[in-house]
Simulated assay, not measured.
Amino acid sequence: MMLRSCYRPLERCFGRIAGAGGDGLMWHADLKHHASGDYSIAVVQANSNLEDQSQVFTSPSATYIGVYDGHGGPEASRFVNKHLFHFMHKFSKEHGGLSADVIKKAFNATEEEFCHLVKRSLPLKPQIASVGSCCLVGAISNDVLYVANLGDSRAVLGRRVDEDKKKTVVAERLSTDHNVADEEVRKEVEALHPDDSHIVVYTRGVWRIKGIIQVSRSIGDVYLKKPEFNRDPIYQQFGNPIPLKRPVMTAEPSISRRKLRSEDLFLIFASDGLWEQLTDEAAVEIVFKNPRAVSAVFDLHVLLTLCCNSH
C-alpha cells in the first residue's frame, strides 16, 4: 500500500501537543504502518527556532527514514528534508535499485544544490554560508537496510536474543558518529590536515574543529568547505579569520549495509539530543518494554522508531 510522505510540517501530519513540563512543543505519532512494518515519531522543540526536520517515505518497494539535525539556522535541514529523498528515488530508478553508490550520489547532489542556494542567497543573506545540518538516513528495500550518516545523529537496532529461555534484546549500533569528541574522529581529521596544528582545539569545554564546530561531516557549512565563502561578515560571527587551505568538513556519508533478519525487532533513528541522555542499550531497552507508546517515552529532539516485520 502506498503511503504519503510526511514532507509537510510535522504538526500538520501528526498533530501537536505541549512537551513534558512545558519544555517545548512535541509532535508525535504512535505506530503508523510502512512497507516493512510500523513506525512512530516524536519531536521536541528544544530551541526557540526549530532547526530539526524528520521524515518517513514509504512505497511498495522501499522505505526511507530521515533525521536532519540543523545548526546555525533551519535552512539546511529544511533543504535536505525537501530534496534528499527525491534524489535517492531518482538515482535508484536510474541505476536499477538502491545501493551505497546511489545513496552517495543523492547526498552529493543534495550538497551541491544547497551550495548553489547559498551562492544565490549570499548577497542578501550572508549568514547562510554558516548554516548546516547533520543528516541520518535509513533505506530499506528487499529486506536490506542501508544506513547513511553525516554528523552525530545515530541509528541503533534492537535485536532479540534468547538467554536461558528468556527473551531479551541487545543494541546494535548501525551508524558512525562524526564528532571530534571521539578520539578516532579527531585523529581522522588531524591526519587529513598534518600541516595545521590547530585543526582541532579544546575550547568551551569540548573539542571543536577550528574552535567552532564539533561535527566533521554535514550538509552545508560551506564556509568551512569552500574558501570563497569564508569571508566577511562570516569572520565577524566568530571574531577571527579562519584561513582555509582545504575543506575542514565533508559531506561524504559513512554507509553501512545489513540484511534484516527475523530476530531484528526495531530501529531507532535519533539526533544527539537523545544520545547525550541515553546509551544505546538504555534506549533499546525502553523501546523493547514500551513498544506501543514509544513517542510518549522519548521526548528529546527527533526520534523515529521503525518496527521490523519478521523475514
Results as ranks from 00 to 15, higher is better:
L3H: 03
R4A: 12
S5A: 12
Y7R: 12
P9V: 02
G15A: 09
R16E: 10
I17T: 11
G19Q: 02
H34R: 01
V43N: 13
V44E: 14
V44H: 05
Q55R: 12
A62P: 00
H86R: 05
H89R: 13
K90L: 13
E94G: 04
A100N: 09
T110I: 12
E112N: 15
H116C: 14
V118H: 13
L124P: 07
Q127L: 11
G138P: 09
A139S: 01
D143I: 02
A148D: 01
D152V: 03
S153N: 06
V156Y: 00
R173H: 03
D177L: 10
V185Y: 00
A191E: 15
H193N: 12
P194R: 08
D195H: 13
W207S: 11
K210H: 10
I212H: 15
V222Q: 12
K225S: 15
R231P: 09
N240W: 14
M249G: 01
M249V: 11
T250W: 11
A251Q: 11
R261L: 08
L265D: 13
F266C: 09
I268D: 05
F269V: 04
L274A: 05
E281W: 06
E281R: 14
A282F: 13
F288S: 10
P291E: 10
R292D: 14
R292E: 12
A296P: 02
L300I: 00
H301I: 02
S310P: 03
H311L: 11
